[in-house]
Nucleic acid binder design. Structure first.
Length: 182
DNA sequence: TAAGTGCGTCGTT
DNA sequence: AACGACGCACTTA
């Protein structure tokens, strides 16, 4: 594994790569990891390419745009249920949102609503697997493992660059009003 | 509207 | 067996 910093105008993210691809993204100022194993493996040419794709993709999402190209993902840590959830979430476009219940239905497990929430929390690649676009029913904010401020921030960025979103939701102010708890 | 309680449900640990 | 990034059906202010 190899971790590399990704500087953006919104802070310094950390990207961790395995031999198979991008394995994990950390938000700026996230608590330090205990796992020092192989964290500084050699930066191969392949990883350099993935790093570059990751950096551009993150910058796109931060600007409210859909990335054109993505690095390969290493999702081997996930269970098959979690990977189904993550795959479904990848189909949500910027400016669009789904509820946890809608994601559950999409993967054919309509009652596993809470489990979908759990899978969102276990998402190792936030931003690029856009779990911030999954809200509680009727547009309440729900939760976010990286901190609710990041979820609001990303949704507002995408709202500003998506006419559809405004048509459906009136305004991003809804996020402030409808969140269940801070 | 807002805030609180209780319960069904199911994947994960 | 216990715990949630849920959703629903309720009360109470």
């Amino acid at each position: 594994m190899r971790s590399l910093p990704i500087e953006t105008s919104d802070g310094c993210f950390q990207a961790r790569f395995s031999g198979a691809g991008l394995a994990r993204i950390f938000f700026p100022d996230s608590p330090p990891e205990d796992d020092p194993i192989q964290e500084k493996a050699e930066v191969t040419p392949r990883i350099e390419v993935w790093f570059d794709l990751t950096r551009r993709a993150i910058q796109d999402v931060l600007a409210g745009r859909a990335p054109e190209v993505l690095p390969p993902f290493d999702l081997s840590t996930g269970t098959s249920f979690q990977r189904q959830v993550w795959e479904a979430i990848r189909s949500i476009r910027p400016g669009q949102t789904l509820s946890y219940g809608e994601v559950a239905r999409l993967i054919g497990a309509p009652k596993a609503v809470r489990a979908v929430g759990g899978a969102c929390g276990a998402n190792p690649i936030p931003l690029l697997i856009p779990c911030h676009r999954v809200l509680a029913k009727s547009q309440r904010i729900g939760g976010f493992s990286g901190g609710l401020h990041w979820k609001r921030f990303l949704l507002e960025r995408e709202a500003l660059s998506s006419f559809d979103f405004f048509a459906k939701n009136r305004s991003a102010l809804r996020f402030e009003r409808q969140e269940t708890r801070v």
